[in-house]
Design a protein around this nucleic acid. Structure first.
Lengths: 350, 350
DNA sequence: TTGAAAGCGTTACCAG
DNA sequence: CTGGTAACGCTTTCAA
């Protein structure tokens, strides 16, 4: 627990002044400090295991090379934090570090957390959410370069760049996959009204049907929630006691948990997946979609890419390297990725 | 993006000196500063929306009221981060803030992350892991008060306090629950050899059988991995084509995903849960155990409590309020909690 | 080529 | 009761 070495300690050990230490260690020694002194300084720094005090640095430079990430519940929720992982990848590769604060879904804590981060001189701010959603941008975020990941400004005149998945296309391509397999009666368990993602995925599903000229039965879309039991109940409603001719041949789910519920229901009803029924997930949740039996065909949310894109935009703004002119754009849409596994197959012949 | 107000700005506006501002705003105005000046100062601070610069404060005080949390993969993994949530609860209630860094399972990044945190004057450090495991404590952690949550020092002479779940008791009580329901043939899908938690849970399972005087078949324990498909395969091996008399009447799983796989297998085999087979999970994973059909009886990991206990220990050490003498203890064990839902029931009569 | 000094925003000490 | 000054650790400018 003893004190860390300071630049002064290094200077003393090397027998030079503090300024020399600073110059050398910051690569501006040549032409300012004698070669020999440089070596002594470097040796001393190494010996004392010296690294500059970041606090003093921040105070002096008025910047910290720290990016603050405010999460609604990415940390505490059971959903993976790959947005943060992707953001961190980029930040580290560009010499920044990220620190995360999580408000556990209590947006009343947003402003305070932002202030805390700002008081610590973060050079930029990122707001990240588990699911796509509109947020009230905390005032403080306008004081430094900021970006929104997986969420967007609820105001009509958004002031911050946001990076989100292209849910409509995702929904469309998911449905297209099923359509291409010959399914003509595809039910949709669509999640929940109050998630902005749900209606977008529904839209994509409708678009795919329209484009393929396949008529859409209005009673095939259920706003069913997001959990296993909701998928189970939805599937039971669709399948239990229904004659094969009346059954949908595929069920497209707005997330993977719903698909687990559907698969479970099918098993209880003696229906094989994908023989009798194709089941499609969404999100590609780690350790769910890939390990289900059968493994789930799903539409992967590009979480890592969202994080990377958002951080890239942010750092470009901070470092003024924004040559793409993207600074004027407000929205980046990242495509979802179809992952074909084993839970979907050709429509059964009737 | 304009500069924040400093104490000097406040002083000027109020027509006093910086020191007066500092005294008043830190509650030590009475007896030092004229009542009238105090009011002017407070008014000025409010008007300028002044809050002290945390960086300067840290530099000055040599402490930051920030706790650094280093996570192996709590943030990015699909496992919930309630340890961090619990830790944050306590920290905030005691006037600290937490910042999280995640190394994404790359322990080579540990030391660097710790240095980063240390350079930013964190007052304390917590290392937290997703699953129980031994770690190589990064040297830097010994320089400030530190604690381990859900992990422990791999060395024979541990130097840091750690807080972990009581897995043996958890395993025992899970098995006892099944035993009390009359099950005499309980199979165990035990996870994976290389997790320290697995053998502890197995030990508890054995202990329960010994205490209840129920003989244990050696071929009933499978080190099966941790995922849905592993549970599925394990259950198939145990149940498929096996006569009712030869079948285990309950399967205890080392986590909830395994239990999902088991339930799915049972469904495919036409076995009802819990009628024909009781299924027990472990962990109480949010949105899995509680939403399965049937909802999973499980042994809840006390993640939130672990986080709270670890942070309490840490802050007590930092603030010197450690009156419990716990500072001398190296280990805190937090009990798991049996959560009875619908997947377990009385053993079928034969 | 080197060292001294100023300043980043704060608080604590000590004269006045 | 008040206000000036030093110090926290660093970088940068300027003078020697």
């Amino acid at each position: 627990m003893n004190r860390k070495a300071t630049a002064l300690d290094v200077a003393k050990l090397a027998g030079v002044s503090r300024s020399a230490v600073s110059l050398v260690l910051n690569g501006r020694g040549d032409g300012n400090v004698a070669k020999e002194s440089q070596d002594r300084i470097r040796a001393a720094a190494l010996e004392l295991n010296y690294s500059p005090n970041a606090i003093a640095l921040s105070l002096r430079n008025q910047r910290s090379r720290v990016i603050g990430i405010l999460s609604d519940e990415v940390v505490v929720s059971p959903f993976d934090g790959n947005i943060i992982g992707g953001a961190d990848d980029i930040a580290r590769s560009r010499g920044f570090v990220t620190v995360v604060m999580d408000t556990e879904r209590d947006s009343a804590r947003d402003a305070g957390a932002i202030e805390t981060l700002l008081d610590r001189q973060v050079d930029g701010l990122m707001y990240v959410t588990v699911g796509l959603k509109p947020i009230d941008v905390p005032q403080g975020m306008l004081r430094v370069p900021s970006v929104l990941a997986n969420c967007y400004d609820a105001l009509p005149q958004p002031q911050l760049h946001h990076v989100i998945p292209d849910e409509v296309t995702g929904g469309r391509e998911a449905a297209e996959h099923l359509l291409q397999l010959g399914h003509l009666d595809i039910a949709l368990l669509a999640g929940d009204e109050d998630s902005p993602a749900a209606p977008l995925r529904v839209q994509g599903y409708r678009d795919a049907h329209a484009a393929a000229n396949v008529p859409l039965r209005g009673d095939r879309i259920f706003m069913a929630g997001w959990d296993i039991d909701a998928g189970y109940r939805g599937a039971m409603k669709l399948l239990d006691g229904v004659s094969p001719a009346e059954r949908p041949t595929a069920i497209m789910c707005a997330n993977d948990r719903l698909a687990v519920g559907v698969t479970l229901a099918a098993a209880r009803l003696g229906l094989s997946v994908p023989g009798d029924l194709s089941v499609m997930g969404y999100d590609d949740e780690t350790r769910i979609a890939d390990t289900m039996v059968p493994a789930l065909t799903t539409m992967a949310l590009p979480l890592r890419e969202i994080g990377r894109a958002a951080m890239t935009t942010l750092l470009d703004a901070i470092e003024g390297t924004d040559t793409t002119g993207k600074g004027t754009t407000v929205e980046t849409m990242v495509p979802c990725r179809l992952v074909i596994r084993e839970s979907t197959g050709p429509a059964p012949t009737r």
